[in-house]
């Protein structure tokens, strides 16, 4: 993982931990759909996306993205990494 990807991962894990506690968060399957499994609700997810945009200076675009691909920890990390690579 690059430095940036690691930072995304840390950020997302922190949000998930705030919601379900650190122990539970650490044992979570990284491919689990966070919304469908009630870990984060859509309000949490959106505010997390907005904070990610602010913190990392991103401008996310989901025009043709199927949300199923980025609602897991790993999926979101990949999407963010792709965003960074596309713009840098």
């Amino acid at each position: 993982m690059s430095f940036k990807e690691e930072a995304f991962y840390q950020f997302i894990m922190e949000k998930v931990s705030n919601k379900i506690g650190e122990t539970k968060a650490a044992s979570l399957d990284e491919n689990l759909n966070l919304i469908e499994h009630g870990i984060l609700d859509s309000l949490d997810f959106i505010s997390m996306l907005m904070e990610l945009e602010m913190k990392f200076g991103l401008d996310l675009d989901f025009e043709d993205v199927d949300p199923i691909t980025f609602t897991s920890i790993q999926g979101l990390c990949l999407l963010l990494a792709g965003e960074v690579n596309a713009t840098s």
Partner: peptide, 9 residues
């Protein structure tokens, strides 16, 4: 549920 905040696709 997960398409609710990103329904474009």
């Amino acid at each position: 549920e997960s398409a609710l905040f990103s329904p474009g696709a």
